[in-house]
Every structure is written in structure tokens, then in C-alpha cells.
Nucleic acid binder design. Structure first.
Lengths: 153, 153
DNA sequence: ATAAAAATAGAATTAATATCTAAAATATAA
DNA sequence: TTATATTTTAGATATTAATTCTATTTTTAT
């Protein structure tokens, strides 16, 4: 599917705020409500837009302590890799998980309340997963964001 | 503000899909439309919910190539740090930026089309920012996600 | 136990989405 | 180029959902 300039502008608007009225986007883009409505439907139908979600204030939910945890596996057989990924996804503290090349095998973004919770998470959850070699925790001092944020699904 | 169990369930539902009708959430939670409506308003008003956004398919937007780029600064004075952060935020390829402790100073999540674009990004954009020491790029082989995703704002 | 405050349900209103029809713009084929 | 088909758009209408309102219930504090 080919996105024209208007589509791209519309996607960007929806990435910043998806709850405005169709008329609002229509005014921004100098189009009629129907035109915008149909474009949005098409973006959904063709899978460009995958989800509409609420974003929350980490601090308010006591998940303000972020760590980027680098993980090396011991063995890299397919079975081991798949089992690791399956186990990791069960942990609600893991908000992102990347299988990467280079120094480490995985980089996880962990969100918890504080250092104490992180220690607890490491000892009772993460390190109980088999096949983890060593880990290196990069503690997040601050998250640098632009406003309004454009989130990549 | 204190969140009760129903609030937490509601937040989770909204983090998975914020475009269902109030009635839908009401049915899920065994409450009336008004009850859910007022709870959502309160979550917004008190800043628990910060944003409603559309998530997009990276592949469809040709931003399917993800790199976690680790960066060391040369100097760590306040001015240098602030300037670096300001410059980094101007780059649309940077979808997340964390100031971290440990081995490196910053970890950036970069989204571009392919390796060629990444090279171009590094040469013509990132490394033109002053005060960058060295970088280490962790190329993402795959992103491990649970469905439906609960995204942390 | 009682009063005050907060939360909830259900009805009424307002406003938005979704649908329909026709017109305009764009692309396609002769 | 001209005619035809396809897509996109605008405007009107119908449908559905959000919002507001009032009364009732539940919770909280005294």
C-alpha cells in the first residue's frame, strides 16, 4: 500500500493523539470528514495502524524505575532461544525485549517501582530463567522525550 | 491518587485498546457506562493516562530496521549533556533516548528502513552532534512482543 | 449510628461516527 | 486526446456512542 503525503500527515497526527474527532483531523488537513474517515479506515484495514492505546504515567503506576538489562545466554540453540523468549514475555516487568547481535544476546527494558523491586525482580524472576549467562544492568537516569511523542508500534 | 483494582483493570484494558466503547469496558468490568466514564475521566484528569495514541506497523512505514545505539560522551558537563539531548531529540530516527549509568552514557533506540539508511543516519546526522565519544550499535535481530501489548508511556 | 461525600445506575441530551448518494478528481484504455 | 472506469471527496442523513443530569446506593468519616 502506498501512502501519500496526506496519509503520512494523518498517521503522525494519530500517533500524537488518536482521540480527536474526525472533524478535527479534517480541519488540520483541509479535507472533509468523510475523506479523513475513509483514509483512517484504509490505514486500519491495510495494517498501517495496528492498535490504538492509552499511554500512562509510569510514576503514577509506580513503575518509574527503568533499567536496560543486557543478557548473554549460555547456549544459543533454537530451543534455548525460544524458551528464553517465552519465559521473558511472562514477566510483566519486561516492557520491551530485543534479540540483538553484538556483545550481548538480549536487551530488555524493565520497568519497576524502585531499586529494591529491581533486585527482587532479578533474584526471584529473571535469573530463575534457565540458560542465562551473565547480565549487565544499565540503570536509566532519565528518559529524554520529545513532546508530543510519536510512538512507534 | 489511589488506584483501586477496577482502575488498574480499566487502565490495562485501555493500554491494549483505547477505542472500544464505554459500554464495552463497562461490560468487561461489570459496571455501568457512567461508572466507567467517570473513572476514565478521573484517570485522565489526575494524569494517570497521559495520551491516547495510534501505533503503526514499522514495516509498513519502512522503519523496520531497529538499532540500540550505545553512546559515550567525551565531556559530561551539564551544558554538554543538555546540548546532546537537545540535538538528539531533533532526529526523527530516534524513537527512544535513555540517559544511563554504567558502561555508556546514552542508549538510543533508532528506527530506520535498512542498514544503508542506518549508515547514512550515523554519518550525516548522529555523529555530527558534538561531544560524542564512541558508539556501539546493537542491531536488533527480532523484537519479542506479547499480544496484545501493554505499552508503558 | 448518622451525616457527608463519593460512586453508581439509568434516562435524557448532545455530539460523534458511520452510511449513503452524488459530484469531482484521477487514472486507464481506446 | 477523448471517453470510460475507478477512486476520492463532499455534503446530507441515519445510527451509534459520548456526555450530562438526576436519583439512588455505597462508602467514608465522625
Amino acid at each position: 500500500m502506498e501512502l501519500d503525503l496526506v496519509d503520512k500527515q494523518l498517521v503522525k497526527l494519530l500517533q500524537e493523539d488518536c482521540k480527536k474527532t474526525t472533524k478535527h483531523y479534517a480541519d488540520m488537513l483541509q479535507l472533509s470528514k468523510t475523506a479523513v474517515y475513509e483514509r483512517i479506515r484504509r490505514l486500519e484495514r491495510t495494517g498501517v495502524i495496528t492498535q490504538y492505546v492509552a499511554l500512562v504515567d509510569k510514576k503514577k503506576l509506580q513503575k518509574d524505575f527503568t533499567v536496560l538489562c543486557h543478557i548473554r545466554l549460555v547456549q544459543h540453540t533454537k530451543d534455548n532461544v525460544l524458551r528464553f523468549e517465552r519465559e521473558v514475555l511472562k514477566l510483566e516487568e519486561v516492557s520491551e525485549c530485543f534479540h540483538v547481535g553484538g556483545d550481548y544476546d538480549y536487551i530488555l527494558k524493565i520497568n519497576v517501582a524502585d531499586m529494591k523491586s529491581y533486585r527482587e525482580f532479578m533474584l526471584t524472576k529473571l535469573t530463575t530463567i534457565n540458560n542465562i549467562g551473565n547480565t549487565q544492568s544499565s540503570f536509566v537516569i532519565s528518559e529524554v522525550k520529545n513532546t508530543p511523542s510519536v510512538h512507534i508500534g
